[in-house]
Design a protein around this nucleic acid. Sequence first.
DNA 1: CTAACGTACAACCAAATGGTTACACGACTC
DNA 2: GAGTCGTGTAACCATTTGGTTGTACGTTAG
Lengths: 127, 127
Amino acid sequence: MVTRLSDDETDAVFRALADPTRRDILRRAIRQEQSISALAERYEMSFAAVQKHVAVLERAAIIEKQRRGKEQIVRARLETLARATELLGEFEALWRERTLRIEELLADPADPASETTPTRPTEKGHP
Amino acid sequence: MVTRLSDDETDAVFRALADPTRRDILRRAIRQEQSISALAERYEMSFAAVQKHVAVLERAAIIEKQRRGKEQIVRARLETLARATELLGEFEALWRERTLRIEELLADPADPASETTPTRPTEKGHP
DNA sequence: CTAACGTACAACCAAATGGTTACACGACTC
DNA sequence: GAGTCGTGTAACCATTTGGTTGTACGTTAG
């Protein structure tokens, strides 16, 4: 983890990923760095439209562009994706925290240091 | 993994996560199931606005509602988040595939299986 | 029964999105 | 220098989004 995504950055990342064309562009860019026009050839839409999608991915720091001659080479920034993954992981961590709390309650029905009391741990459902 | 998210489902999930209010609602719902109005109290905006956010999360299958008396209880669906995490993992898998390919090329400078024919495997694009 | 509560939904509005076409610009090719 | 290729950007349009207010409806409390 480097800096942790701010709210705005997180918005941008998830919004950028919420479009099938952009996810596809990202996949291609991951498999092989390539120019915007090379990417644009693969899609039905206009060059300008593809360029806009690339711009959205770039603003989200999911890809970066690098000039090479007259071309602009698109490459993926995997760290940003990793940070998004971490963020999703935080939700799952919250869930684990919660089940922990619940187990504590079931373990200590009214007794904070484990004593007597035949506590039946009536397990509730889990996902 | 259960069914794997379709393109439309993926759109919905990432779009739903691309809003700070909705992420916050999700966190609260994960920590503790609660009614829509209980959630709505926490935010500046109108009840209807919060209700819309909940609807977006529900359409994305990130949360589900369950009637309890006159209240509608919101609970998180962690499996959907898990599938989103898998999806991000696929991007990283693509990256690993790629580095693998590159290493192979470096290892076999011009020799795919130690045989004749100096065929230069000048990799073109992929489908 | 009536009142209040929690929810749903419609109509409306401003702003953002995803697409288009058209045009300007920089960098190679000839 | 002229032309072309790859990019960037602007203007425009339809649709979606995120918010508002208002209204209706089922359920629980008195």
